[in-house]
């Protein structure tokens, strides 16, 4: 085992029946990926792709059918390991008869925090998630955003090394999303490893360094974001200044013209050089050449489509 390897999943398979009368559904098919120490790891997929199932297997809530699932080289059911993990479930539901403070105290007790340590930590977290004024209100009176924030606080109560968040940004308003992202980044700066699932690509792109994309239970792409998106240059946008555009390019490539300025889109790298030559021959100028890279969103949608065809 690599020292920095925190989560290792190899050829993980899981199938189950949603209903007694329905046939078995293959939820995860040969899923493999590794999360290393210090990563902000995005786990992407459409609804029903198998993200939550994977996360539940990581937390020991569900057993796998086959494959290797290890956290720090140990099984997910290892109780000692759980002391190092913080987890926030998807659309969390908590003991709503407890007040915010009691709720955090309860979880602090499960992690055996000492009285003084517990008090300080709870105040710190209430401040972090901005729930100090609602700390003595019962959770049944909390809004969805507040539940998500107190949920985040309980996930951090034990100052975990690994933070697993299942759709932490869903259902939050833009400010809420910004605040949660901010908390994630702060924890990352402290050296924590963060593994979180999402179907909101823009958020993942903003904060993650590494991603795995799951489509219908299968990993379709995995790696550093810059590698995944920069590998794929889709097209080149070339801006040319000339009075004789007809001598340089066919109409179908010119996507925009304004006075003597023309924007030409080429899809093949080999077409760039002849275009430049023609431009100079016609007495024109090259103003810019911009490669259009795939965004994570486009990559995701492409992979989704491929997955659906398969």
């Amino acid at each position: 085992m690599n020292v920095s390897e925190i989560i290792k999943i190899e050829n993980l398979n899981k199938s189950f029946k949603i209903d007694f009368w329905k046939k078995t559904n293959d939820v995860l098919k040969d899923v493999s990926f590794t999360v290393n120490s210090g990563d902000i790891y995005g786990f992407l997929g459409h609804n029903g792709a198998g993200k939550t199932t994977t996360i539940k297997i990581l937390n020991g809530l569900i057993s796998s059918n086959s494959g290797i699932v290890e956290l720090w080289g140990k099984s997910p059911s290892n109780v000692e390991n759980k002391n190092k993990i913080g987890y926030l479930p998807e659309n969390p539901s908590f003991y709503d008869y407890l007040t915010g403070r009691e709720f955090l105290e309860f979880y602090a007790d499960l992690y055996k925090l000492h009285t003084l340590q517990k008090k300080t930590r709870i105040e710190e977290l209430l401040k972090l998630v901005k729930l100090q004024s609602a700390a003595d209100r019962q959770l049944r009176k909390y809004s969805k955003g507040m539940i998500q924030r107190i949920g985040l606080a309980q996930a951090l109560i034990n100052d975990p090394e690994l933070i697993i968040l299942d759709e932490p940004l869903s259902g939050l308003d833009p400010i809420g999303r910004y605040e949660v992202r901010d908390i994630i980044l702060k924890e990352s700066l402290k050296g924590k490893t963060i593994f979180f699932s999402s179907h909101l690509l823009s958020d993942v792109e903003l904060i993650c360094d590494t991603v795995t994309i799951l489509v219908h239970g299968r990993v379709v792409a995995s790696g550093k974001i810059e590698d995944l998106v920069s590998r794929q240059i889709e097209s080149w946008d070339i801006t040319i200044e000339t009075k004789h555009i007809e001598k340089i390019s066919s109409d179908k490539n010119v996507i925009h013209s304004h006075a003597n300025s023309h924007l030409i889109r080429l899809y093949k790298e080999k077409d760039i050089e002849p275009l430049i030559k023609k431009t100079f021959t016609a007495g024109g100028k090259i103003k810019s050449i911009i490669p259009n890279r795939k965004t994570l969103e486009e990559l995701f949608i492409d992979e989704m489509k491929k997955g659906e065809v398969a």
């Binding site: 539940k56 937390n59 020991g60 809530l61 109780v79 000692e80 759980k82 002391n83 993990i85 987890y87 926030l88 479930p89 659309n91 969390p92 539901s93 908590f94 003991y95 979880y107 499960l110 992690y111 949920g151 309980q154």
Partner: peptide
């Protein structure tokens, strides 16, 4: 039923 089980069983308890 209320799905509170997910969070509690992910904690270090047997």
């Amino acid at each position: 039923e209320k799905k509170t089980i997910y969070n509690i069983l992910s904690k270090p308890i047997r």
